[in-house]
Design a protein around this nucleic acid. Structure first.
Length: 479
RNA sequence: GUCCCCGUCGUCUAGAGGCCCAGGACUCCGGCUUUUCAAGCCGGCAACACGGGUUCGAAUCCCGUCGGGGAUACCA
């Protein structure tokens, strides 16, 4: 039997983090077994479904690198088939027409709750003659659910879960206007699409009982269920907009890499021994339902960030340069010229180990492309007091005469000069860093100088020392 | 209210009766390294919700309590 899974989001918002993980698990499971993974858009709620949300789901999935087999199925388009099944159920005597009004139903619920009974419809139209139907009420179709015994599901994650049938009322399958409800649509679609494993959030666990009843009534084989625990916010409560209930694109915009997101998500609620960091190929190889935990997990930005830092270090320099380019240009307020671009590309290896997100990376790369004169931050300004500027003035004179403009030679000269002046290397490096980058933290400063080139380096130093007294030269004429 | 699920360091988790006075990762705190900041390496703090059982022996099994979550729609 080939495995068929599906991800079935309703397009009422973006692809949030919980949905993304559910999609990932389904995808991983299907790929692990060499099966199929389908995408189904549950757009039967016409009022809340939007085309924008559909696009957001497609985009989010694509960004994460989760591809689906075949075309996405739109559930609403299949409404006629769903209704057909409902009619068949009525014809078979497994379903019936119910003429209750919303008010009547509300009263029933209220009474049931007051009496401590399982809330719900009491089945009053189960065996009633439709001829006694009130005029002007469009009937709904309800499943004639078993009233005795219990419904049991074998869940691959939750184990065996059972519920007494008297807890379950006769669910509505077709609304008064003839449109199918979610409960009917999922079952029909999952059956028609040949879905063998339903992996979804455990908020659907109780739905599984009702859905099982429909499968049985139709005489269809019940698929395997795997209800995975939900993801909660850092406070343990349901994920809200404030924490992780953001769309996948929000994480992309925060500067996270899709591979980091995937690695983070797969480890949230699933584990493979002590393994923490592994590529998607390995996840496909290792993923199974047995490794899925039963308790809800919390979304932790810090861990995601640390994973992202790891993947940033592993990412190719060209790719990273491309990814941050739009952000760099936005900060610059102009297109990046060839010189700036090549400096950033050349400095990427040193830049990326210092950043945790693409935002930080873009930020830290900016000084390479900034126009002169640089704006200095407060700490940099403090480095460039009178003594600092005087020192730079003499250093600049030496740099102007440096025999070779490479990081190695530049550093050797600086070390020699520091020794001559009884300074530590930092005594020279820090003022240089301040003048050259506008900040007191940066990649190794001699690498920065090499990338900037002699002219730009001297010009940036000149910008900060220009009001200084004439430089004194040392005996060698080098720094 | 009723039903269902869950409960190991702050967080993600390993652990499927003795290998656990509980291991890894993130965070945090030290140290080494060091031109800054990172990275890297070394080290540290920190948990079996609670109470009863079962057993020679329980984080692991059973019951209860408490806590958290979910479901109770002509939403999905």
């Amino acid at each position: 039997m080939t495995v068929v899974t599906r991800f079935a989001p309703s397009p009422t918002g973006f692809l949030h983090i919980g949905g993304a993980r559910t999609a990932l698990f389904n995808w991983l499971f299907a790929r692990h077994h060499g099966g199929q993974f389908h995408l189904r858009i549950e757009d039967t709620d016409r009022a809340r479904s939007t085309p924008e949300a559909v696009e957001a789901i497609f985009d989010g999935l694509r960004w994460l690198g989760i591809d689906w087999d075949g075309e996405a199925v739109f559930q609403f388009a299949r409404a006629a088939r769903h209704a057909e099944v409902a009619r068949q159920l009525v014809a078979q005597g497994n379903a019936y027409l119910c003429y209750c009004t919303p008010e009547e139903l509300a009263r029933m619920r209220e009474e049931a709750r007051r009496d401590g009974r399982p809330a719900g419809y009491d089945g009053r139209w189960r065996d009633r003659d439709p001829a006694t139907a009130p005029a002007g009420v469009a009937p709904v179709v309800r499943l004639k659910a078993p009233r005795e015994g219990e419904t049991v599901i074998q869940d691959r994650v939750q184990g065996e879960v059972r519920v007494a049938n008297d807890q379950l009322d006769d669910m509505v399958m077709l609304r008064g206007d003839g449109t199918p409800t979610y409960m009917l649509s999922v079952v029909v679609d999952d059956h028609d699409m040949g879905v063998t494993h339903i992996i979804r959030g455990d908020d659907h666990l109780t739905n599984a009982f009702r859905q099982t009843q429909i499968y049985r009534a139709m005489g269809w084989e019940v698929p395997e269920f795997a209800h995975i625990p939900l993801i909660h916010g850092p406070d343990g409560a349901k994920l809200s907009k404030r924490h992780g209930a953001l769309g996948a694109e929000a994480y992309r915009d925060m500067g996270f890499l899709p591979e980091a997101m995937r690695n983070y998500l797969v480890r949230l609620g699933w584990g493979h021994g002590d393994d923490e960091i592994f590529p998607t190929e390995r996840a496909i190889e290792w993923f199974d339902l047995e490794g899925v935990g039963r308790s809800p997990s919390r979304f932790d930005m810090a861990k995601l960030t640390s994973l992202n830092a790891h993947y940033l270090r592993e990412a190719g320099d060209d790719r990273l340069a491309d990814l941050i380019r739009p952000r760099v240009e936005a900060a610059l307020g102009r297109p990046l010229d060839g010189i700036g671009a090549s400096r950033i590309r050349g400095g990427m290896a040193s830049l990326k180990v210092r950043a945790r997100t693409l935002l930080e990376l873009a930020d830290s790369a900016l000084f390479y492309a900034r126009s002169r004169p640089l704006v200095l931050d407060d700490k940099a300004r403090r480095q460039l007091d009178e003594a600092g500027r005087a020192l730079l003035a003499t250093v600049a004179a030496g740099l102007a005469a440096a025999p070779e403009w490479t990081a190695r030679v530049l550093e050797e000269d600086a070390r020699r000069r520091a020794e001559d002046q009884g300074l530590k290397l930092g005594g020279i490096a820090q003022p240089l860093r301040a003048a050259l980058t506008g900040s007191t933290t940066s990649p190794p400063i001699f690498e920065v100088m090499e990338l900037l080139g002699r002219d730009e380096t001297l010009a940036r130093i000149g910008d900060v020392v220009e009001f200084c007294t004439a430089p004194k030269y040392n005996k060698t004429g080098t720094v």
